[in-house]
Amino acid sequence: MASSEDTVTGSRSIAAGETRGDWRDRARRFSKSDFVRSFPYWFIPFSIMGLGVYGGIGWNTLISLTDYEGFQPPDFTDLDFSMYVQALQDPSVILVTKNTFVLMVAFTTITMILGLFLAIVLDRGIRYREKIQTIYLLPMALSFVVTAQFWLWMYNINNGLVNAVIGLFGLGPYNWIGNPDLVLGAVVFALIWQFSGYAMVVFLAGLQSLPDDQFEAARIDGASTFKTYWRVIIPQLKSSSVSAAVILVIFALKAFTFLYSMFGQYRVPRATDILATLMVREAFQLQNWAFSAAIATILLVMSLAVIAPYLYYQYKQGSL
């Protein structure tokens, strides 16, 4: 009897030992798995970034629901959408939104067209192509603070180069910065100057990935150069176009530095006031934290409306 009990306990302990061993083995295998071993590699950067980006967005949304302003700490017990209501009813916010769209559409369209044009020109077997590309891309390596200084001088009413050049054609001089009808166009032109080299690089990469024989085939069919580009080459640059357009639109939405630096203050001329400048001014000059957080959320939603379809498109293309 005693012995049989012994065997029972014995066998039980063996079974327990087995499961424990199994569990340990599994834990060891898990700890050696690719998931655990690669965890620190991606999770540390991911959590830092996630806290900054998504934590920041969440917190910003929370602040936008309060009435936080001035130097008092925000009151999180009384949450409502009053700031959004205020923003949507404010005529100056509506004007600023309109400016944002005008800047975004004009800047993106013209930069894309110019970038594509330059890419096609440089793709036609130009000598010293790399050198020329370097010159075209140079503005992109400069800070907006720096380029804003250059353009402020270019647009100077008495001594600026722009007025000197159009003076050759008997035009001007115009007060590019001071005239509310001209200042937005002047800013857009300067931004096109800075970004068209970038658009060109994106399109050039697209052009160079196309096989050469298409051009030959179109030529044999008797198509003119213009027609070949218009009908055959440009339609294949859809992916490059989408990428360039998204980057440019997102940039136009958040353009702040150039405007601030050009005018040297938070309060930029009304005609160039966009959501991005309004948001920073409301927060850091006027301490209307909750109101500016609401503007920031509107800006974020506008950006997401561009980014989300873009990422989905990239995913569908299999290039994500």
Binding site: D34, S38, G50, I63, A276
Partner: peptide
């Protein structure tokens, strides 16, 4: 490293949004 394709993809998408969001959306916080 392949550990879980779907999760990896989700993490990647979260990173991608992090590239594009306007910094204005996090300035006040």
């Amino acid at each position: 490293v392949d550990w879980h394709k779907r999760t990896q993809f989700a993490v990647l998408v979260l990173f991608m949004f992090g590239i594009f969001i306007p910094y204005q959306a996090v300035l006040v916080p």
